[in-house]
Design a protein around this nucleic acid. Structure first.
Length: 467
RNA sequence: CGGGGCGUAGCGCAGUCUGGUAGCGCGUCUGCCUUGGGCGCAGAAGGUCGUCGGUUCAAAUCCGGCCGCCCCGACCA
């Protein structure tokens, strides 16, 4: 029973780059055995799923549909969702925004104040409570946050403020589709900035602009900010962040140079003037279909023109006093006069991102998770679980990998082929493969899901390699 | 909201035209076998045929209402 090799005591590795405990949980979730995991994978594609991310999310056991455009998140999918949330939260906090949590259910009266209750139309899910009071399931939170702010802040000295929350929303889409990318119920990060004047609002806007660049980059996405329609307010303070993917919902046009720009290698000081960074990203042409300026696009050298399709994953928007005026969100200015606060709102489609990332990162065999959002960093495959020696070796690796990161262990009594297929499908970035063949030489195979590259490593070297 | 399609076992589907004891593949369960890319053999379980009504000796099949889901378009984070 005792393994013919020893490792563990000599192993050293750097501290884990990620928290060992899943956010919101006290239970150690760095290790999971597939024999105990609720992970219903599908060999065949359910008929209702058309696009690749939807198919893969169903097949890989991430979600199940419960109604049109409404989904339940299974353990593996929830881990991805939480990872995305975590990155969003970290970048919001870093930018100086503060987290709150507003309810999903709102009162109709609140929306009557802004005049949007009648204006919003059938996309708003309207409900009544037992007293026949009109309520609604929030599609967004401008009204609510404006009231919270109005009641809590009275002086320009308390500005600026930027409040965000990550909460489920509901929009009763006429035609939900594309799985979680256009569901009716969706998880969204939205925040709202409050400033005393337009210049302040622009600073707040710029912070979000940079925070968004960082947020999407950390998820392994190429998200390009594109000038968006500002409607009656005008100006240049509205951008959609678009992920390029062949299956994108809309046509987009941009300068190729934007694709390779890197934000993560820079030090960002949110107290400094961020305008130069914003200029750097907005000076190159980029527009969605609706905003496309053919003439401007054709001024770009032909080799640098990029016409592609994209998925909107974020939207930032300055809207001035659109809500603060009708809802009387007023502060006293430095001169003692009353000023309507200047507001902006900023959204990230958190649940949509799960689909968006898959659209941007998959292959024939399944999902290819970027490491930062992957449900587990490492998969451990035991190719012969009823062989005591193989299993003992796996158990040691399992414990060591779990101590340094996050590992999903396939200890099921299945044929190797089934395990390979499942692991490729669910897309864990690293696979550690242990079977009788390699064991004779004291080696495990480490496979990179994305590149397919394989390395034979001595058992002792596996954990340091993946640290 | 306009146009189209679908609803039969957990998943993928046949059967409906031409009414007559509900089938196939995968998955699941049991046993054997096998173990480096969804292996093989034997056996088994599992279905109010979306739902309500009508026609008929007899309805998955024909007729009507309703419900649900998907696709194209218009719309949208």
């Amino acid at each position: 029973m005792a393994p013919r090799f020893a490792f563990g005591s000599r192993v050293s590795y750097s501290p884990p780059p990620r928290p060992r405990h899943a956010p919101g949980s006290s239970k150690d979730l760095t290790k999971m055995r597939m024999s105990q995991y609720f992970l219903p994978t599908l060999k065949e594609t359910p008929a209702e799923a058309q696009i690749v991310s939807h198919r893969l999310m169903l097949r890989a056991g991430l979600i199940r549909q419960t109604s049109a455009g409404i989904y339940a998140w299974l353990p593996l999918g929830l881990r991805v969702l939480r990872n995305i949330e975590r990155i969003v939260r970290e970048e919001q906090d870093a930018s100086g925004a503060q987290e709150v949590l507003m309810p999903t259910i709102q009162s109709a009266d609140l929306w009557r104040e802004s005049g949007r209750y009648d204006a919003y139309g059938p996309e708003m899910l309207r409900i009544k409570d037992r007293h026949e009071r009109e309520m609604l399931y929030g599609p967004t939170n401008e009204e609510m946050i404006t009231v919270l702010f109005r009641d809590g802040v009275k002086s320009y000295r308390d500005l600026p403020r930027n409040l965000y929350h990550i909460q489920w929303k509901f929009r009763d889409e006429v035609r939900p589709r594309f799985g979680v990318m256009r569901g009716r119920e969706f998880l969204m990060k939205d925040n709202y900035s409050f400033d005393i004047d337009k210049e302040g609002a622009r600073r707040s806007y710029n912070k979000m602009f940079v925070a968004y660049l960082r947020t999407f980059a950390r998820m392994g996405l190429k998200a390009i900010p594109m000038r968006a329609d500002t409607g009656p307010i005008g100006g240049d303070l509205s951008h959609e962040f678009i992920v390029l993917a062949d299956t994108g919902e809309s046509a987009v046009f941009c300068h190729r140079g934007l694709v390779d720009k890197d934000i993560l290698s820079r030090e960002i000081d949110y107290d400094s003037d961020l305008q130069p960074i914003v200029n750097e990203w907005t000076s190159l042409y980029a527009a969605t279909d609706e905003m496309h300026d053919k003439a401007a696009f054709e001024k770009i050298p032909e080799g640098d023109r990029l016409a592609a399709r994209g998925i909107e994953v974020g939207h930032i928007f300055y809207f001035g006093t659109k809500y603060s005026a009708p809802m009387n969100a007023i502060v006293t200015g430095p001169n003692g006069d009353s000023v309507n606060v200047e507001m902006g709102s900023y959204g990230i489609g958190v649940s949509r991102l799960v689909g968006g990332i898959i659209e941007a990162s998959h292959d024939e065999a399944g999902i290819v998770w970027p490491e930062t959002v992957a449900p587990f960093k490492v998969a451990l495959l035991n190719l012969k679980p009823d062989d005591a020696t193989v299993s003992a070796a796996c158990q040691k690796l399992y414990d060591a990998l779990g101590a340094s990161g996050q590992v999903l262990y396939d200890d099921r009594d299945l044929r190797p082929g089934a395990k390979f297929a499942d692991m490729d499908l669910i897309g864990i970035p690293w696979q550690v493969i242990v079977g009788p063949k390699g064991l004779v030489a004291g080696k495990a195979e480490v496979k990179n899901r994305k590149t397919g590259q394989r390395e034979e490593l001595a058992f002792d070297d596996v954990v340091p390699r993946l640290a």
